[in-house]
Write a protein that binds this DNA or RNA. Structure first.
Lengths: 205, 205
DNA sequence: ATTTAAGTATGATCTGGATCATAAATTAAA
DNA sequence: TTTAATTTATGATCCAGATCATACTTAAAT
């Protein structure tokens, strides 16, 4: 029923469109903060290259990873469109080039390009799916179930026999567990042949 | 910066538009299931009157309330637009009249009415905000903090001195806690004068 | 008005995963 | 290559909140 332009292609075209329209990327080094909770949103951020993590931090300094955004993806629209202060930090996890598109320009993009608008609706829907899944897990499921679900989700982008490029700490920060707990569970999943461990690396079977 | 039609007004106009366009509502009785997890989405559901809860249920039968939808709101778009099976049940919590708009018609609505499309983007953004907030709470915060945050959020639509129309069980099902825990915490918040209890009812101070 | 059901209340016990401590292995930096 | 920094690993203890049990209160149904 849904006949839509290939998603990745549309993403790449979007970055190209921005560059052609003379939007200039800013360079961020690994660890740089793009925005902080409480700040008033002024732009939507398109990643020309690199990777960022979006994290909320509680009073004890414990991080929760709300999302990870990679090359050709964008972030920061919800807060901008609702005109509400950010809830999360966004931090470059590696050196990155990012195009900040000011609010008015972003609205114009949405208005002038219905296909981009449709793509945004899909992107938001996808993020909602992920968050709904994780909410169910955090609310109702025990540690082992949480990690099994999360790893299955992350394995979607990984080939059989290939490594899942993520640390135990990151899995902990995505699942609301502690790193020791994640380590023990990953070991257990390995014992149960649900994944393979090679020199600590998590390998998809 | 954002100049948008009043949200509630646009919602009501949408229902009116559907009725004018000869979409017919279906009646559901309290407890009726509108859709179930696993089912393939075919429509988006607009609530002409009534109320529904969207819940995921784990293997032990424990419910988690993903969202509550009321008159003039709609639900079920993300799964439809991603063409993925539903994750949750949607159940009428009171007698309701609901207009099922088939996928193609919904896409046509989005295409023909950019303001509706823009409104959907805002609605999805708002739901993402709520889910991000709850994820942070479930991942990082203890019971008392969770309930305090949730009650503060729900109090937004309640006048001072008025009752929060929600049961302890529903708060439990939204926060991933057990009903006994919620009862104890609500009592504690009452002792701390953060809310008032009158014959068991939670009153906003 | 009476019965029934749903929701609230409260104590006692139990347990999954946090916390603490310590060390080994791997990767990055000097 | 050596040192330093991350990440993985593992045991011991602890505690917040689940679980279990039981009763009371309020609202709904007959």
């Amino acid at each position: 029923m849904l006949i839509l332009v290939n998603q990745v292609l549309l993403q790449i075209m979007t970055i190209k469109y921005l560059l052609d329209s003379n939007f200039k990327p800013t360079s961020y080094e690994k660890g740089d903060v793009i925005y902080e909770p409480g700040a008033q949103p002024r732009a939507v951020y398109f990643i020309k290259s690199g990777k960022v993590r979006m994290v909320t931090v509680n009073d004890d300094g414990k991080e929760f990873i709300q999302g990870i955004f990679k090359t050709n993806e964008y972030f920061g629209e919800p807060a901008l469109l609702l005109n509400k202060p950010y809830l999360a930090y966004t931090i470059a996890t590696q050196d990155s080039e990012i195009i900040a598109v000011k609010g008015d320009d972003f609205l114009k993009m949405l208005k002038d390009h219905p296909d981009f608008s449709m793509k945004l609706i899909q992107t938001l829907s996808h993020r909602l799916f992920y968050k709904s899944m994780m909410l169910e897990e955090l609310a109702n499921e025990h540690a082992e179930h949480r990690i099994r679900t999360l790893v299955a989700y992350l394995f979607k982008d990984v080939e059989h026999g290939q490594e899942l490029k993520i640390t135990r700490q990151q899995l902990a920060d995505m699942s609301g567990l502690r790193v020791e707990t994640v380590i023990r569970i990953i070991k257990k999943l390995s014992d149960q042949k649900e994944l393979k461990l090679i020199r600590g690396k998590i390998i998809k079977i």
